[in-house]
Each structure stands twice: as structure tokens, then as C-alpha cells.
């Protein structure tokens, strides 16, 4: 039975994939993009329904932690109280309180975390020198230093600003394009593998 279901999943994936790619690119004669649009809309609707699965997952995980008195379970209590309070306030029509909570708690905490990212990154660069002392690591540190120094509003470092602009437009842009092209190529190969049924992730 499991094998039959796996074959069925493969057939559905291959057929839907080929129809979608054909319809999106050259437009199949009987649909001219309409069938692909329906498939894409179905995918979006399915993904939207999964938010319920997410909420259920959140409840199961944190109720389990509280029940098992796991390490850090008081945070789970706070999380559940906050979640129910937000839903309750929304049901009561008090979205103004929700907005205040979001602006004064959530945004403030996220901003402080964002400020910490810089320190974590500088410490990471320092660790890089300790762990992998190579020419690439040295170049990375040098580039980080140039970027940080040229971010300062000083007129004395005008020449360095030109270096920064050159770095951003030539090597950084080339490297970024190289990484993105690599990801694009791998995406095509993986997509083709799914289309021909070589990928097993959806059929076992």
C-alpha cells in the first residue's frame, strides 16, 4: 500500500510539475496560464491553512514543557499567557492594547537584539582569526575593518571611502552574483530531479 501511495505521489508531482512549467512558460493551448494559476493558488491556500498547524504545534510544545517541568518552563507559561492574551484582546476588539504591547515590548526587544548583532559579528571575526588563519580569513577581516572605518562620518578618510565604493561595486557584487548563480543552478538541477521523480523526499 505504501509503495502504491509513493508511486501515486510521484505521478501527481511529475504531471503537475510538467503542466505548471509548460503553462507558465509557453502557455498550454487548452489553458494559456489558467491551469498553472489554479495550481499556484491551491498551493497558497494550503500553506495558509498550515498556520493552524503552527499554532497547534506551539501549544503542544509549550504545554509539554510545562507538564514535564522542563528547563525554562516558566518562559513557556509566559508565552502561552501572552498568546492567549493577544487572542483574547483581539476577540474583545481591543486591538489598540495589542498595538501598544507590540510597539513597547516586541519592537523594543527586537531592537536591542539587533544592536547585539554587531557585537556578535565583531566577536565572530575575532574568532575567525584564531580558528582559521588563512589569506581568505585575513582578507575578510581587512574588509570588515575598512567597512566599519568608512562608516564613520569623518572627512579625513575620503580615500578609504573610494576603496569601500570600489569594494561594493566590483568584488562584493561579483562574489554575490557568483553565489546567487550557484544557488540558481542547483535550484534548476534539484527542480529537474523532482520533475523526473528522482527526489525521494515526498514519496516515502
Amino acid at each position: 500500500m505504501r509503495r502504491l501511495l509513493a508511486i501515486l505521489a510521484s505521478v501527481i508531482t511529475i504531471v503537475v510539475g510538467i503542466i505548471t512549467i509548460g503553462d507558465l512558460t509557453i502557455g498550454l493551448p487548452f489553458s494559456n496560464g489558467a491551469v498553472a494559476a489554479v495550481f499556484l493558488r491551491l498551493a497558497v491556500i494550503t500553506l495558509a491553512f498550515l498556520i493552524m498547524a503552527g499554532v497547534l504545534n506551539l501549544l503542544i510544545v509549550h504545554i509539554g514543557r510545562i507538564a514535564g517541568r522542563e528547563r525554562g518552563f516558566p518562559y513557556s507559561i509566559i508565552l502561552l499567557i501572552s498568546a492567549f492574551a493577544v487572542v483574547g484582546l483581539w476577540l474583545a476588539g481591543r486591538t489598540d492594547i495589542n498595538t501598544i504591547l507590540l510597539n513597547s515590548v516586541q519592537v523594543a526587544i527586537e531592537s536591542s537584539l539587533a544592536a547585539l548583532v554587531l557585537f556578535a559579528l565583531v566577536y565572530g571575526a575575532y574568532r575567525l582569526l584564531h580558528r582559521r588563519l588563512s589569506w581568505a580569513g585575513g582578507l575578510f577581516i581587512l574588509t570588515v575593518c575598512i567597512m566599519l572605518v568608512t562608516a564613520l562620518p569623518l572627512t579625513e578618510i575620503g580615500a578609504l571611502t573610494d576603496v569601500r565604493n570600489w569594494l561594493m561595486t566590483v568584488p562584493v557584487s561579483a562574489g554575490a552574483h557568483g553565489i546567487l548563480l550557484g544557488i540558481a543552478l542547483a535550484t534548476i538541477v534539484t527542480g529537474v530531479r523532482i520533475l523526473v521523480g528522482q527526489d525521494r523526499s515526498y514519496r516515502e
Binding site: 556578535a120 574568532r127 550557484g182 544557488i183 542547483a186
Partner: peptide
Amino acid sequence: IAYAMSDELLVGEEMF
């Protein structure tokens, strides 16, 4: 950031 802080390195298409 992964390049600077990860114990071992994977870049771009190597993830696939």
C-alpha cells in the same frame, strides 16, 4: 556571517 562564525563552511550550491 556563517563564513565568519560557523565551525565548518558551506557556500551557496554546496547546500544542495
